[in-house]
Nucleic acid binder design. Structure first.
Lengths: 356, 356
DNA sequence: TTGAAAGCGCTACCAT
DNA sequence: ATGGTAGCGCTTTCAA
């Protein structure tokens, strides 16, 4: 802080106008890039702005225009590569359309999500993209609409909300992979998810609050029923949230005489832990255990055996969500759209017929 | 838009004040939680606010207070798990201190970085955390200080800038792992980084614009020199930015009669590709090739062999950066601090003595 | 404890 | 094409 360089006084349009010898309105026009000004004046004002090191105040601008050029994004966990990709998609699309992104992490906690949305709205973001933690609690989401802002749901649909949504074809994908496993001869197939219920037991689909996972479980159970397996429910395992919880869950699964011959992991974090656990337990893959996971995380291609996955177009999911939101912000008025992006089964080496 | 529910008129303090039968100033005091008001009035105002469904306008608040409660974060690529963890650390710390995070992706492009910083400043973020793409171009970073805002550098130091910085002990870590490799008998050790020069050739450290990588290369070369290897430079390979570029780079490396017996990858994305390529080329690891990478990405523990890594405390890096920034925002006035977090070598199975 | 009034920096409307 | 001026919704003196 030696030199008093550009003193810390804030330079405003008024200052620039004064130096340029024009009115505040005129200076504002060239600085804000609107209205009409003569070339001569434009140059003079720009010179004055540069001389004074003028920096526009977007806050003030937003204040009068009512638009902030910002979209709020609420995801479960940015550390999860799934959301990492999605956010990248969102932010690339946003940037190319001139929008900024305010990011909030909910940690899959509705209360945090609620608070985040509240402050985002208070900060006057133009619209929001959220991956709602629980399909059942929607009051705060409705609040967004009430505040006059657009909302796009990412990866997790809540039809009752009637808002634009982008998801993958979860139910269909789950059904397909379950059928695949059945066709290969598997009868004991477990589905493992981070979602949870108070008593950690799965009873019916409505217990599952994450829409995308609920869809998958429905597909999973439906495919099993179709094949004549009536107790698919007991193969749904909940609460795989931390390495520890996955460990104990796996211990239960593997320790059972009635051990599953195949496991479907609901996300790549779960699959990674299960893979480690199986390996450490000396369970040979794919012969003693087949593994399949949702999300084509980078590592799945590099293990031995490489893991068969349901590839979700995650980046595109984010891109599409941002695109839809921006369309709304530009005034598109249409009934709520639900965009479903196709998944793709990538067969690698982690599936084989059951050994017994 | 059937029902005219809460009509889309914006409710302001004035409205609340009117309904509560008090002055605007008083209403603002209870709504904004400052000054002193009688309990009676407080209750009345709150009731009125609820009745009208009042939503504070943070923009207006920021406008008058000069603080936005927001910190800007500019990283290279949020899709890279490294930054994913760091951003999670930042955002957790920020949230617990009552700050929001505006995220911008530079894609490691200085021009984008420049633009991002400009709009972040225009949006009046209270301070910034950035992972500068190039150590050489600092004008836009200095600009942050000139605008009266605090800046914390994340993972990449630029000492000349004289700002708070959080990094890992890159140089020392690189030196240590190179010595380890040398001690195991390796003499042909390659260092592969995404950083690049115009002609893709490494000549001297100053060619490398990413500070953290420059440090590592210096450590790498220094350790080699110490062991009597004079041409370490030729083992530095640049431009490993995409799967394709890594493929051709690897082809060159592996195809050489003088193939390296060990490779140090500068990040986990590179390591992953190299791992795949080596496997697909039938190069046995670790016997025919030792691999070591910076960043303890989750997948490194799960491959065969698992990959030996330099664990950087990435989440903590982000946390610390946010903590330092927030301290500055709270008025801490101290000389620039450079926090160096220790790394840890995690030996797994990807290193063995050279086979020839 | 409460109220009146003056801005914060900008845009937007209405004149000229 | 340019200028004057009234706000945007809030905080913050200063008085009462």
């Amino acid at each position: 802080m030696k030199e008093a360089q550009s003193k810390n006084v804030i330079v405003t349009v008024a200052d620039v106008a004064r130096l340029a010898g024009v009115s505040k309105a005129t200076a504002a026009r060239v600085l804000g890039g609107y209205g009409t000004v003569s070339d001569k004046v434009r140059l003079e004002v720009k010179a004055a702005a540069k001389a004074l090191d003028y920096r526009p105040n977007e806050l003030a601008r937003s204040m009068t225009t009512g638009r902030s050029g910002t979209i709020g994004v609420v995801v479960g966990d940015i550390e999860n590569p799934f959301f990492g990709s999605a956010v990248r998609g969102i932010s690339d699309m946003a940037r190319s359309a001139g929008f900024n992104v305010v990011l909030a992490n909910s940690g899959e906690d509705v209360d945090v999500e609620r608070a985040a949305i509240k402050t985002l709205v208070a900060k006057r973001v133009d619209g929001l993209i959220v991956s709602p933690a629980r399909a059942g609690e929607t009051e705060h989401l409705k609040e967004i609409g009430r505040s006059g802002r657009s909302l796009v749901l990412l990866d997790r649909a809540i039809p009752a909300l009637g808002v634009d949504t982008v998801t993958a074809d979860d139910r269909q994908a789950a059904e397909a992979v379950t059928r695949l496993l059945l066709a290969r001869g598997h009868r004991r197939i477990a589905y493992v998810t981070a979602c949870d219920t108070p008593d950690h037991l799965y009873r019916e689909a409505s217990d599952i609050h994450t829409a995308s996972v609920r869809e998958r479980i429905e597909g999973f159970i439906h495919a099993g029923r179709d094949a004549g397996i009536s107790d698919m429910e007991r193969w749904v395992r909940l609460g795989a949230t931390t390495p520890d919880s996955i460990r104990s869950l796996a211990a239960d699964l593997f320790g059972n005489v009635d051990m599953p011959s195949a496991i479907i992991a609901s996300d790549s974090l779960i699959a990674l832990e299960l893979f480690k656990l199986a390996r450490d337990s000396g369970i040979a893959m794919p012969d003693a255990l087949s593994l399949l996971t949702f999300h084509d995380a980078t590592w799945t291609a590099v293990t031995t055996p490489p893991v068969t996955v349901v590839r979700q177009p995650v980046y595109e999911l984010g891109e599409a969500a941002a695109r839809m939101l921006i369309e709304r912000l530009k005034g598109v008025d249409a009934p709520p759209r639900h965009l479903v992006l196709p998944t793709e089964l990538i067969e690698r080496g982690s599936i084989a017929p059951p050994s017994r």
